[in-house]
Design a protein around this nucleic acid. Sequence first.
DNA 1: CGCCTTACGTCAACAGGGTTGACCCAATGC
DNA 2: GCATTGGGTCAACCCTGTTGACGTAAGGCG
Lengths: 242, 242
Amino acid sequence: MATRVPQERRRRRPTRSGVLLSEDLIVETALRLIGEHGPEALSVRRLGTALGCDPTALYRYFHGTDDLVLAIADRIIGDAMEGFVPGDDWVASLREMALRVRAGYVAHPRAAAMAAHRVTRRKSEIRAVETGIGLLLSAGFEPASAARLYLAFIDTVLSHAAADAAFQALPRQQREADHRAWRDVYQDLDPVAYPALTAVRPELPGMADSSFEEAVDLLLEALAARAPAARGCGRSRPGARR
Amino acid sequence: MATRVPQERRRRRPTRSGVLLSEDLIVETALRLIGEHGPEALSVRRLGTALGCDPTALYRYFHGTDDLVLAIADRIIGDAMEGFVPGDDWVASLREMALRVRAGYVAHPRAAAMAAHRVTRRKSEIRAVETGIGLLLSAGFEPASAARLYLAFIDTVLSHAAADAAFQALPRQQREADHRAWRDVYQDLDPVAYPALTAVRPELPGMADSSFEEAVDLLLEALAARAPAARGCGRSRPGARR
DNA sequence: CGCCTTACGTCAACAGGGTTGACCCAATGC
DNA sequence: GCATTGGGTCAACCCTGTTGACGTAAGGCG
């Protein structure tokens, strides 16, 4: 099979059910499908029926599942960052970027779980990188530091977001089991063998919650502390948790 | 099918090829299989043939794929943390924990990619949590802070490790394409539309590398800065990158 | 020592997945 | 209006996890 996907103009023909396929329509349908019928709903075959076309028609638009996934990922990034304009405060701006990306991923857990660690090399991703590195440059970092630190920042954001998304993407049963684990298993431990866990026992149920914001805040504190145009050292926590 | 998995003693019978199955043997074989034949090699059926038994025999030992995955994950944690003893320097100790966990995950990419975000609720995981929280308590944090910050720390470590593992787990073709993206796509951008990216252009090929250590160092800096028994504010970078 | 129970290895089958090559119609360029 | 060929369709292949039924041999017990 020649999986040649010309992205020039195309010579589209209405599908059996009358729909005109397009890259955008496919990606949108994929996201809708995931949103409506849960994380497991994304498969070439189901996507085909949802679009009212033969599943294999998709191979005319994407080289394969992977290609489709990258397109979906870039769409999520684009939607999440839509309307975002970086403000004067670079720390606050990075923080908002982080929250937006995470929200976008959690809204599409299954897709995010597949795509979060990839390089989409598409429009929206490139724009986001441009914005982020721009913010660090505006903070006074050298180009080399800016690139390196942006990578550390965005990787943390993306991987945390992916973790949250992966958790959302679990079948309800497993999700609840993981959640209960902190209440159940970790509650009945031998105090002698596990003194630290015993000391923090009341806090353990909270371990099931996401640590996303705390992690981002810690990271931004460290960045602010390292910034040439420093924002001070001790007290620059950009936001309180909970 | 009654997926009842008694973990008491069992009444084992040699398999058709003469092997005596056991939970440990299955987990070890799974890890070996992944290590030898690549990330795609882990499937119930292949695991069955590797063990010299019918694939469905595994269901006598694990409730399903998920259960098996959790067992594998805990084994990885256990192997990675084997022989680790926390030292006097809590920052250095946390740093070593991070590096060990990451090394363990990257060594078993496919398994890690499936399991990194789960709560195994098994022996090795519990021991690791005990150690980590103990370190933060020893640093002088209140129990509530210790639990919360440990969560932020370990989630960052785990999700970064998972990201690295997920990348390793990609088919070679996709892995190389993602890697090349930073050299190719991101090199030929319009300087007017993308000033920041143009400013850091020489640094972009490095974006393909892992930012794990940088992120961990940033996080540990922030933790050290927040610690009651402070290690000082500005200059506590626990390790230099590269 | 030998029976009975039942754990557990095996087998066949099902539903779903991605991907392919062949087929052929109709939209487009000339 | 004709030739070209993009692209929608169909059938088929091989993979996956999971199940219920089946029977054999291991272990407890008399």
